[in-house]
Each structure stands twice: as C-alpha cells, then as structure tokens.
C-alpha cells in the first residue's frame, strides 16, 4: 500500500496500522518495529487528517512494545551467554549452534 497515494483513504491506513499493532502481540515484536517506523511520518509529520490521532497512538504503543521487546531480548542474550556454560545440558538443549572448543 502506497501510504503517500491520495487514493488510499485514512480509514484504510488506520486499519493497516491497527492490524500491525495487534499482530505484534503474537510474539512478533518486529511487526511493532516496522509499524512504528512505517507510520511515523504519517502520524507526526503529515498534515492532519481524521484518523491521525488514532494512528499516532498505535505508532507510539508499537514503538514502546518494540523497545521493551528489544530490552528483554538483550537482557536474555546477556544472561544466556553469561551462564550458558554453567547450565550445561539445559543450555546445550536450548542452543542451535554450539561454539567449538568452549565450555
């Protein structure tokens, strides 16, 4: 969908933005990130239109969701790398790729 096209109505844009936002709850934080970036200029920079306020809310919520998910992911990666060796069999079972020659 070409968001800059005049043929796309504001309601369609809001609908798409909402779908992306809801889709993010299916453990797909990347959808939130895409949503936040993609609709950012429409929500904050474009000339005002009827659905802009609602889109703005979805964009903000998506950005927060994506940010939080990223934080959680980073924390988990740090913890996992820190304790992988200590967890032994459990950590090995969680790994897709085990580094060679290391505990």
């Amino acid at each position: 969908m070409d968001l800059s096209s005049a043929k796309v109505s504001g309601a369609d844009k809001l609908d798409l933005c909402r779908k992306y936002f809801l889709g993010g709850f299916a453990l797909l934080p990347f959808l939130w990130a895409v949503n936040a970036v993609w609709f950012a200029s429409l929500a904050f920079r474009a000339p005002p239109f009827a659905e802009q306020k609602a889109i703005r809310q979805y964009v903000l919520a998506s950005a927060v969701g994506a940010g939080l998910s990223l934080l959680v992911l980073i924390v988990w990666i740090v913890i996992f790398n820190q304790y992988r060796a200590d967890w032994g069999a459990v950590a090995d079972a969680m790994s897709f790729n085990i580094p060679t020659g290391q505990p």
């Binding site: 032994g88 090995d92 897709f96």
Partner: peptide, 13 residues
C-alpha cells in the same frame, strides 16, 4: 559434555 553435544538433535548443523 562433548558426547552430549555430539548427540544433540536440535541443532541446525
């Protein structure tokens, strides 16, 4: 440890 890792089935390679 190394036998366990050799026998893992969930790794990509």
């Amino acid at each position: 440890t190394c036998l366990r890792r050799s026998n893992l089935v969930n790794t990509l390679n």
